[in-house]
């Protein structure tokens, strides 16, 4: 279980301090599939990064499976079972797809194993194993390799940051299926930041983040109809639906 109380994240700007996340409280039960959604710039990525330890947020308390993680760095949180798939994954000159997946898995993977992970994100495998994770990959390919790295890591908490971004229709269908299988067949807790109805419909819970705050949260069947009818300033997706 992930439990957060009083999480704040502030950055310095030329006009003084700017609050990005304001007094966030969250409880996510083990094994749940939670979607975080909300308008662009609402603070979703910042929240995910704060959980992973990638940004210097402060909190009254933040525990994962009972362990206080507030003072832990990224590596230590990773070793506790927290993982995060970047919204904008970095490229690595010279590093092969198989290298990255092997690092993620913590051991040398066989071609067959890499193949299995890549298939789950809709990449036709033999073309990709020997590829470098550099400028030669398209945005959508890079994004899917990023997702595959989380699958290979197989952590107890997986946070995916807009996994659908830049991905074609067919791969998206494959990916949705992968999330569904993951939820059905594993104990992992899934937090997926997404704007996609198909992913939202698979979830157990929705957390709506806007303006750096939790503006709504609860079971999907209860929250989903509400956000479809709500107007949230700045959220194109929701406004389109009105």
């Amino acid at each position: 279980m992930l439990s957060i109380r009083g999480l704040n994240y502030e950055v310095e700007t030329e006009h003084g301090p700017l609050g990005i996340l304001k007094n966030i409280d969250l409880d996510i039960e083990t094994g749940r599939f939670v979607v975080i959604t909300g308008p662009n710039g609402g603070g979703k990525t910042s929240l995910a990064k704060a959980i992973m330890g990638l940004v210097p947020a402060t909190a009254e308390s933040m525990t994962y499976n009972g362990t206080d993680i507030t003072g832990l760095d990224v590596t230590e949180r990773a070793k506790l079972g927290i993982s995060y798939g970047f919204q904008q994954p970095p490229r690595f000159k010279g590093m092969l797809v198989t290298d990255l997946l092997s690092i993620a898995a913590g051991r040398e993977l066989t071609d067959g194993e890499c193949c299995a992970y890549l298939t789950q994100v809709g990449l036709c495998t033999s073309d990709y194993q020997g590829r470098e994770i550099d400028a030669g990959l398209s945005g959508g390919e890079l994004k899917r390799i990023e997702i595959a790295s989380l699958l290979a890591r197989n952590a107890s908490l997986m946070i995916f940051d807009e996994p659908e971004a830049g991905i074609d229709l067919w791969s998206f269908a494959r990916l949705t299926e992968t999330f569904r299988e993951l939820h059905e067949n594993s104990e992992a807790t899934l937090i997926i930041i997404s704007h996609q109805e198909r992913i939202i419909r698979l979830s157990d819970e929705i957390i709506l983040i806007s303006g750096g705050e939790v503006s709504m949260s609860g079971p999907t069947e209860e929250i989903f109809p509400k956000i479809m009818n709500a107007t949230v300033p700045g959220c194109a997706f929701l406004e389109d639906r009105k």
Binding site: D73, V74, T75, A78, K79, M95, I103, A104, S149, R153
Partner: peptide, 23 residues
């Protein structure tokens, strides 16, 4: 790049080493 590899459980030094050896 460093942060990505750290989210996969490597220390900062290990991450640096992997990036250099790949490069």
């Amino acid at each position: 790049q460093l942060l990505k590899l750290m989210t996969l459980g490597l220390s900062k030094e290990e991450a640096e080493e992997r990036i250099i050896s790949g490069f």
